[in-house]
């Protein structure tokens, strides 16, 4: 999936200007990191791509389609093509690992056989095959994060968004998670990861977009 921001600005109703004049182009099958101090606008940028928020100015093109031309009814179908790992909106603890991961498939109406196959494939990729019947509560923080990733990729999305996916994890687990994203990217998925873990980002050797107070201050190689 291809993402293009054209001089995008976002001003919240409170008057706070979260993004201003942000332009960048993320190509098909590209992987990039989004960095910046907290409050720099990383989350806002991700929300705009997910159509959780709408931009105030500028255009956002996804595969050439201007998101501002899409009505409310189109939002669910847009979101089905994007896998997200957000820190809040995590797992549901009233159901098993399997049913957490299966949610995107159920929502888009996959049949049971297909669902079972895809869920197990996704869990296999994140190394949790065999724990599908457990409640997520019974798993460790790192494993829970990987359930979230399995849920994000189970639908074979064309774009993977991750907002601070390594937030509470130790360096070894963080590296594992990042490697997972890299693997998805290798099979053609466009990946955008927001992280403030600069050391980790630098090690990954990918394109880095840096936000500072809503402005894109750096777009280029790893710093």
């Amino acid at each position: 999936m291809e993402i293009e921001f054209q001089r995008v600005g976002k001003k919240y109703e409170s008057g706070q200007e979260a993004l201003s004049q942000v332009s960048f182009h993320l190509r098909q099958a590209e992987m990039a990191f989004l960095t910046g101090h907290s409050g720099a606008g990383k989350s806002t940028l991700m929300k705009l791509i997910m159509m959780i928020e709408r931009q105030s100015t500028g255009n956002i093109l996804v595969d050439g389609v201007d998101l501002s031309t899409l009505g409310k009814g189109a939002i669910p179908y847009h979101r089905r093509r994007v896998g997200v790992v957000f820190q809040n909106h995590q797992l549901l603890f009233d159901r098993s690992v399997f049913h957490n991961v299966a949610l995107p498939l159920q929502v888009s109406g996959a049949d049971d056989a297909q669902t079972g196959k895809r869920v197990r494939a996704a869990l296999d990729k994140v190394g949790l095959l065999g724990k599908e019947k457990l409640n997520p509560m019974a798993l460790s923080g790192g494993e829970q994060q990987r359930i979230g990733i399995a849920r994000a990729v189970v639908n074979k999305p064309q774009l993977l968004l991750a907002d601070e996916p390594t937030g509470n994890l130790d360096p070894r687990l963080s590296a594992e998670i990042m490697n997972l994203f890299q693997e998805f990217n290798r099979v053609g998925v466009t990946v955008l990861v927001a992280s403030h873990d600069l050391a980790l980002v630098a090690r990954m050797r990918h394109r880095v977009l840096t936000l500072n107070q809503g402005h894109m201050v750096n777009d280029g190689g790893f710093s």
Binding site: P76, R80, H89, L92, L103, V107, N155
Partner: peptide, 16 residues
Amino acid sequence: RDEVLVMKLVGATNSY
């Protein structure tokens, strides 16, 4: 509420 939010996030329509 949490479930509704997660479902919206993964692309559930309101009718679903």
